[in-house]
Design a protein around this nucleic acid. Structure first.
Lengths: 213, 213, 213, 213
DNA sequence: GAATAAGCGAGACGGTACGTCCCGTCTTAGC
DNA sequence: GCTAAGACGGGACGTACCGTCTCGCTTATTC
């Protein structure tokens, strides 16, 4: 039976212990290739070559490509994207948070890499649901909860309708962005900032245009 | 030089003319396999076999897989989905149109086939932009114009904010649906109806819950 | 049923009669390709292209490649090679005939074309016996009979042993030449003349070296 | 660069060494198919299939069909055919050697397999000279030398003319046999024995018919 | 002299086989 | 006992070409 990830226990067996650097190199290579070529366009052999590792070294750790890619997503994705400290979210006004984080978010959403990763992730969601499930659980869900908290705060302040469905609102915001960046003629960073502003205004997290501060 | 699609001019050349039935069979097979397996998972050989046609018969018409799939999307996609008559859109209330068409739209959006096609199309948008471009031009754009007209009508009636960006509103509606159906635990038709109702209410194309008719 | 060769009877049927030039062009192209590429390396399509003719025009006349090649051999081969008038053979001394014809025979046997044709013919004799049979009947056999007559004449003169097997002697002469030209480092014309002289001397059709005229 | 045959040096490289059994199986399959179907009728794919081996395993070793077939001829051919011990040739009378070996030689020359191999070899000599060259060097030449020694012995004894050209004599013997077996109506073993007897008598390696023992 | 019918070049057809490439597995030597 | 390197059988790829067919045109013959 393959043992996902680094050998879980201490260096138990008698022979040479597994190289911990190899795990990291494999996962990073796997993620990179997934973003560039998608699930079907990526082979274990390519991953091994990019990681500078023999094929058997990969197969010893993960028995299927999907398992390996899920592990790669789980590991790599954590670093990406701006992320407010949790205690800050509880104290600050949604509008302030949105204004502070939006430029970085717009910058990121306008990069080819973000577009590629969204395309690969959404494209895999039907044929390889476990990848999207991993992404959802480790990346999307915490962010949804933070935005959900902001929306509840805004509801109490009255800028968001009290009977609005928070999940639908989040889908509309996140979906609009994903949908927009995957359209022909994708936006640059400046356009993305205007776009996000319009989205946040529509749901009530930013005040209407021309409104006094 | 390959000549995409049925011999474009009249059947000028002197030899046996190309079989028009083969064009159709190839395009339908290509579209089906694209939805089921994606661009990379589809090979010309498979398309030929599914169409009951020799490989050369495919290569004679389209020199690349992407060309062929674009042609397939252009041909096949026209029939799909409910679509109001144009003159009706100009006379009817947006709310009526939405209420009348929504059940069918929800039904379609909840099918596995719709989910698969969305995943394949969005997944291809970065590595094979021409497919998304074809889909956009022949399917999305006319529908966006119709919805845009409805939103302008609603603006004049005051149910949609007069300073709202129509394109952003459409992205939020369409993006929310795409995003929703590709999430883990996708909705069934009944849930999709509730979901669409919430989306339409949010943008102002349907009246708030509990509002009198 | 296909009708080998030019329409055998008069121009019976009602439609357009077959083009007699096509028959000739096809047979010459077929023979040329047979010599250059062998039976397996020659296709009906190539023959048709070389003859400047449609494939169907070939298939209408001969239903198989082997039939066609046999017909080609039968037609083309007649012109090749020096050939003494029959009445001359009966009056002249074998030694004179040999001396007179040998230079031309040596010249021909030393050409690459002769080597190629021998290789193709012998190479086809197992897998496509009908080609060799045609060649044998229309080319080899008459020449064997002429040489046989010369040998019988020589037997009566005593330069050939009276109990020698004529067929074996002919095989030794012809076989030696064929075998020689297909060896590595094939001979040029001058060497071929020396070689033929040695062969004829060995069987007794030429006097020994240094013998007075 | 491909490395013909088994890894030529020691098994230096670090990976899995090449399977020596595969070399043998490939060469035997290649030779068999060459005899049965000729050079053009044999494909690497067929060779691989007959050898029970992947195609790449063949291409790894030999980069061209001609190289592979030459190697096959070199390996396989050694075992074939009767062959007197060398020291025996030096001590025994040519007549004894001929009488002892002739039945087996006649038997072999009368087999369809021998006919097929001769046809393939001679047929390839123009378009693929390296095959004939390999056959010549490894099979024909040693046998020619042995027969040459016998003829020199016979010259000294006076049964072969002292001024005869040994190479021409050998060509006449070997050429006659090849030529005979490739004619229409090839001989059976009994006829082949009579035929060989006549040939050997003609050159002087056997005494004339009716001669006392 | 119009109708008819077969021959003709061209080329599209379904199918097969080619040589290449790459997959995931297996097997070695070395550390 | 893990690592790298790489050979293994298998299978899919795009190409090429096979023999058959189908087209529009041409060309004699027949009525």
């Amino acid at each position: 039976m393959t043992e996902p990830g680094p050998a879980s226990g201490a260096s138990r067996g008698r022979g040479r212990p597994r190289d911990p650097d190899a795990d990291d190199a494999i996962l990073r290579a796997a993620f990179e290739l997934f973003v560039e070529r998608g699930v079907d366009g990526t082979s274990i052999e390519q991953i091994a070559k990019h990681a500078g590792v023999g094929k058997l070294t990969v197969y010893r750790r993960w028995s299927s490509k999907e398992e390996l890619l899920a592990a790669a997503i789980e590991l790599i994705i954590e670093d990406d994207g701006p992320w407010p400290a949790n205690d800050e979210l509880e104290r600050a006004e949604p509008r302030e948070i949105v204004e502070r984080m939006m430029p970085a978010a717009a910058e990121m959403a306008a990069t080819p890499r973000y577009r590629a990763m969204m395309a690969r992730m959404l494209g895999s969601s039907v044929s390889h649901p476990s990848l999207m499930a991993t992404y959802w659980k480790h990346y999307i869900l915490p962010r949804r909860e933070a935005v959900g908290a902001m929306l509840e705060y805004a509801k109490r302040q009255g800028t968001v309708a009290s009977d609005a469905d928070v999940d639908v609102l989040i889908d509309m915001m996140a979906g609009a962005v994903m949908y927009r960046v995957l359209q022909p003629n994708p936006p640059d960073a400046a356009e993305m900032r205007r776009y996000l502003t319009a989205v946040y205004r529509q749901v009530g997290l930013l005040p209407p245009d021309g409104a006094p501060e």
